[in-house]
């Protein structure tokens, strides 16, 4: 398969009016690289309420097959909202690196 170019190379490659026909294609860009801290989920404390999921500005937290929540680190910017809002304190932010 032809590798998708990051930028349309020639002017003829541009969509009319710079319209974008691939909904949600911003996912091609991984904002995870911005992160200074990452969330660590402690399943022993998690009550699976989903407060982290509802408050994530990236929408990158989802429930795994066991019902616990986890962040998709491709997109997590490390804002720390989930850790701050998790009232059973099941999420901790630790430094990247």
């Amino acid at each position: 398969m032809k590798k998708k170019k990051k930028w349309p190379e020639d002017w003829q490659d541009l969509n009319p009016g710079c319209m974008v026909f691939e909904p949600g294609s911003a996912r091609e860009y991984h904002t995870g690289s911005w992160r200074a801290e990452r969330p660590i989920f402690d399943e022993s404390k998690c009550i699976r309420c989903g407060v982290c999921y509802i408050f994530c500005p990236e929408g990158c937290i989802s429930q795994n097959k066991n019902g616990y929540f986890e962040a998709d680190l491709d997109y997590c910017k490390g804002c720390g909202i989930c850790a701050h809002e998790c009232w059973p304190r099941a999420i901790k932010m630790i430094e990247e690196g």
Binding site: A26, W34, D74, K77
Partner: peptide, 24 residues
């Protein structure tokens, strides 16, 4: 929170600042 629509109509990969209330 677990009862709300799981579909993300505003997808990850957007370039809002960390912790952006508006994006949320």
């Amino acid at each position: 929170p677990r009862l709300i629509d799981k579909e993300e109509y505003f997808s990850a990969g957007h370039r809002a600042c960390q912790g952006c209330g508006e994006a949320l």
